[in-house]
Simulated scan of single mutants.
Amino acid sequence: MAIIRKDEVPVTDAVSGYPDPYNLGSGNLSYRHISNAGGLTQFGAALETLHAGGQSSQMHWEEHEDEFLYMLSGELTVVEDGEETIIRPGDACCWKAGTPVAHCLRNHSDAPATYLIVGSRDPRNIAHYPGLDMLGTPQGFTHLDGTPYPKKGETK
């Protein structure tokens, strides 16, 4: 058994990895990647903080990955297929793999919100972004027709 103390896992300030024009920039989110610190490979678990005014991701759903969220502090708006629901400490969200419910988190409050996020790590996963010309594939981000987006630093 590995005991991991909270302060032993460094805080990472997230930078959006989405290609332009869908990039969300930086400053929205920070996290402690707990499962990486423990060497786990079958699922990922992170303690995430979504900062005031931030959005966690583009609206998406996963083909082969379950996602689970447990709210610890603060208040978030969960957006699912255009419907907004406020969640608070003790609330949980489950998004089943293969279920096309597009979702993201928004922090409309003026305080940070922290939650535990857990997801399976299926190497076949494809993330769908309804309304955007984008898929997240094992090879990287592509247009809906399969044409890859340039990687960071590459030109078209």
Rank of each mutant, 00 (worst) to 15 (best):
residue 56 S to V: 10
residue 26 S to T: 10
residue 136 G to W: 13
residue 141 F to R: 00
residue 100 P to F: 00
residue 8 E to S: 15
residue 32 R to W: 12
residue 51 H to S: 11
residue 111 A to P: 00
residue 53 G to D: 14
residue 140 G to V: 03
residue 100 P to N: 02
residue 133 D to V: 10
residue 56 S to I: 05
residue 128 H to L: 01
residue 142 T to P: 04
residue 28 N to G: 14
residue 68 F to W: 12
residue 16 S to K: 05
residue 87 I to R: 05
residue 20 D to V: 06
residue 111 A to W: 00
residue 69 L to P: 02
residue 36 N to Y: 11
residue 74 G to S: 03
residue 130 P to E: 04
residue 144 L to K: 08
residue 60 H to M: 11
residue 88 R to C: 01
residue 150 P to W: 03
residue 93 C to I: 06
residue 72 L to K: 13
residue 156 K to L: 11
residue 70 Y to P: 00
residue 80 E to F: 00
residue 13 D to L: 07
residue 11 V to Q: 03
residue 125 N to I: 02
residue 91 D to T: 08
residue 2 A to M: 12
residue 36 N to L: 15
residue 8 E to K: 10
residue 18 Y to G: 03
residue 124 R to E: 13
residue 14 A to P: 01
residue 46 A to G: 02
residue 143 H to P: 08
residue 89 P to Y: 06
residue 10 P to T: 05
residue 132 L to G: 04
residue 145 D to L: 06
residue 87 I to Y: 05
residue 128 H to K: 03
residue 70 Y to I: 10
residue 134 M to I: 09
residue 28 N to W: 13
residue 35 S to F: 06
residue 144 L to T: 04
residue 153 G to F: 03
residue 119 G to N: 08
residue 23 N to T: 11
residue 138 P to G: 03
residue 132 L to Q: 14
residue 55 Q to D: 12
residue 82 G to K: 03
residue 95 W to T: 02
residue 93 C to E: 09
residue 42 Q to N: 14
residue 70 Y to R: 07
residue 46 A to K: 06
residue 56 S to Y: 09
residue 39 G to L: 03
residue 91 D to V: 03
residue 70 Y to Q: 09
residue 70 Y to D: 03
residue 22 Y to A: 15
residue 8 E to V: 11
residue 41 T to A: 09
residue 131 G to P: 04
residue 88 R to T: 10
residue 133 D to N: 15
residue 32 R to C: 11
residue 49 T to M: 14
residue 137 T to C: 01
residue 113 A to N: 09
residue 155 T to Q: 07
residue 19 P to R: 04
residue 13 D to I: 04
residue 20 D to E: 15
